[in-house]
Computed example of a mutant assay.
Amino acid sequence: MSKNVFKEIVTGFASLLTGMRITLTQFFKPPVTVNYPRESLKMPKRYRGHITFVRDADSGKSLCIACKSCEKACPSDCIIVEGVKREGEKKKSVTEFKLDFTKCSLCGSCVEVCPVDALDYSKHYNLASTSKERFNVIDLVRDLEERGK
């Protein structure tokens, strides 16, 4: 019986030393917390926020041709696309692109299926609001115009 007690004491002391070693190594590492309202995290290049339009470098408008591929590929059925063919243009232009962010699963199917690479992921991560209506319908056409100003 004394052999088991001695073995438990040695095992317990060894685990205590292991725990203290881990605690001391973590104690001297720099903190990883961010002082949020005054500082913000730098998002990695591969971060995938909600979708947004890519701006055409020449015209400043969206590259979207309103082909509705993204609408068809969306498993959450949260995208509505409308477009018209304007006089003098070769392709359709998007007039309405609405995203119901409350239903979006951020799967990326719409970005992958776009034939003209008009959609990309945004880098916005702190989308906070007290009302659901703010995220109910995000108008990407209006969002692109506001970003252009």
Rank of each mutant, 00 (worst) to 15 (best):
G88W: 04
L127Y: 04
S131R: 02
S122C: 07
K103Y: 08
K123N: 00
T95I: 13
D139P: 01
D58Q: 13
V81C: 05
E133M: 00
K68A: 04
C107P: 02
P37L: 06
V111G: 01
V113P: 03
L144M: 01
C64L: 08
N4I: 15
A14C: 11
A66R: 05
A73L: 06
V5E: 13
M43R: 07
N4L: 15
S93H: 12
D143R: 06
S109M: 10
S62I: 01
F101Q: 10
K45P: 07
L127M: 07
L140N: 03
S93Y: 11
A118L: 01
C110L: 04
S109R: 11
T52K: 12
E39H: 08
L140T: 03
C70A: 03
A73W: 08
G60Q: 04
K85Y: 08
E71Y: 05
G49H: 00
R86Y: 15
T52I: 11
R86M: 15
Y125W: 11
K123Q: 02
G12T: 13
E71C: 02
T25N: 14
C67F: 14
V34M: 11
L140R: 04
C114E: 09
K92P: 02
S62A: 01
L99E: 01
V54C: 03
F27A: 12
K132Q: 13
R55P: 03
R147M: 08
E8T: 06
K68T: 06
K68Q: 09
D120T: 12
E146G: 00
T25S: 14
L17K: 14
K45Y: 11
G148T: 05
L99P: 01
E112A: 15
V81H: 03
K61W: 12
K149E: 14
V10S: 11
T11C: 11
V54L: 06
K42T: 06
K29G: 04
P44G: 06
E89W: 14
D56S: 05
N136M: 06
E87F: 12
T102L: 08
V84S: 08
S122R: 07
G49R: 00
N136W: 02
T130W: 13
S76N: 03
E71P: 02
Y47F: 15
Y47M: 09
I80V: 10
D100A: 05
V32K: 07
F13Q: 07
H124I: 09
C114N: 09
F27W: 15
P44D: 06
V10W: 12
L63Q: 05
E89H: 12
F97T: 00
I22V: 14
E146N: 05
T18H: 12
D143G: 02
L140H: 06
N126H: 14
V116C: 08
A57T: 10
D77V: 09
C107Y: 05
E39P: 00
V34Y: 14
L127E: 05
D139M: 01
K68P: 01
S62C: 01
E71T: 03
V32Y: 04
R147V: 04
C114D: 09
K72Y: 10
S122V: 04
K91L: 13
K149Y: 14
C74L: 09
R48C: 06
S131V: 01
E96P: 02
R48P: 00
D100Q: 06
S93Q: 13
G83N: 07
E89I: 09
Q26G: 09
H124T: 11
G83E: 10
T95M: 07
V94W: 12
